[in-house]
């Protein structure tokens, strides 16, 4: 049990020691270790997405009394792989009237930003790739950059649907960024740190979801909107906008957007687990298993919400953010501050 708990940490140390023994400088060894870590992240993300897409299709099927994919492999587990192969081999279509450079870079920017989110997540005890002191701030600020990628996609496509979808997503993401940050701020105030590992350790006795239920609910709603997921999937809104900002994309470029969406989903779910559900802390199992387990449960709730609720109207969406979520989170912040002040 002890070995399993520190397996990855020991492995990393062994790699660094081995490299140093081979005559490499400490800095060089660290850089190589970082590269290995990033490669691991890329691998985890890819495998994760294959599972996630399959899981979502399966669950949406079950909720609608369908069976979901079930032809390829047992329970259709290879369906996503087949889809990925199809997308990889598809013709790369770039419409002639697009802004070529922006059109090409948008999906890359989007996926890079999504992958950057993983850098600060503590996957286990002492297992954050970079244990940033400003982890939460980093996560939020990098996460909000995704808006730019979507706007690039919408603008570069030179298509009214794309542009409308992009505009909507920008409006939505900027509006929901504020309640999201305010909700997290309440947690940060209690934990007294922006470092994610510290926040997790602060939840030793009690999860923050019990201390901050209002913040959790507002955070969850805002996070759903941030992820562009149903019932807040206005930027895509198939029935109105074809595919929103992704309308002109096909093949691998489209797949990159799709990939990034699920990458974001896992990152945000992991953040939820870290901020409200004690992160990697849990009994019996090693810490690096607890975070994925919690994140997956939270993702299942995301799926469940998406396949239950109808899409909200755009003006209602904005009104809800500015007139309900922001006042509530602000009030929550004030109350939290007062309580903390008097407890001291």
């Amino acid at each position: 049990m002890k070995g399993a708990e520190t397996f990855f940490v020991d492995l990393a140390r062994a790699i660094v020691n081995g490299l140093e023994n081979m005559g490499m400088s400490a800095l060089g060894a660290e850089i190589i270790l970082l590269i290995i870590k990033f490669a691991c992240i890329a691998g985890i993300v890819t495998v994760n997405i294959i599972i996630l897409i399959w899981l979502e299709r399966k669950i949406s099927g079950f909720i609608q009394l369908r069976l979901g994919p079930n032809r390829l492999g047992p329970w259709g587990v290879f369906q996503t792989i087949a889809d990925a192969i199809k997308l990889l081999t598809k013709e790369d279509i770039i419409p002639s009237q697009t802004d070529k450079i922006i059109f090409r870079t948008a999906p890359i920017v989007f996926i890079i930003i999504s992958l950057m989110l993983y850098v600060v997540l503590p996957f286990g005890d002492g297992m954050a790739i970079v244990d940033l002191n400003l982890g939460v701030l980093y996560f939020i600020s990098v996460g909000s950059l995704g808006t730019i990628a979507l706007l690039m996609a919408g603008w570069g496509s030179n298509n009214k649907w794309s542009l409308l979808g992009a505009m909507r997503s920008v409006a939505q993401m900027i509006s929901y960024e504020i309640p999201l940050v305010f909700s997290l701020l309440a947690v940060v105030m209690i934990a007294g740190s922006l470092n994610m590992s510290d926040i997790v350790n602060a939840q030793d006795k009690i999860w923050f979801v019990f201390l901050q239920p209002v913040a959790f609910i507002t955070y969850f709603i805002a996070a759903t909107a941030e992820l562009n997921r149903g019932p807040f999937d206005m930027p895509e809104a198939e029935q109105e906008l074809t595919a929103g900002a992704y309308t002109e994309y096909s093949g691998m470029r489209w797949a990159l957007f799709f990939l990034a969406e699920y990458t974001n989903l896992f990152a945000v779910s992991a953040l939820t687990a870290i901020m409200f559900f004690g992160g990697f802390k849990g009994p019996f199992l090693p810490s690096w298993l607890w975070l994925p387990i919690k994140a997956y449960i939270i993702m299942l709730v995301f799926f469940w919400l998406k396949w239950t609720l109808p899409r909200i109207r755009m003006d209602h969406l904005m009104a809800f953010s500015w007139k309900v979520l922001i006042p509530v989170t602000l009030a929550n912040l004030v109350v939290t501050g007062c309580v903390l002040h008097f407890l001291k």
Partner: peptide
Amino acid sequence: ITFKHLWERKIT
């Protein structure tokens, strides 16, 4: 309702 459907027999 959707949670109940999740476990129901599929009609496919």
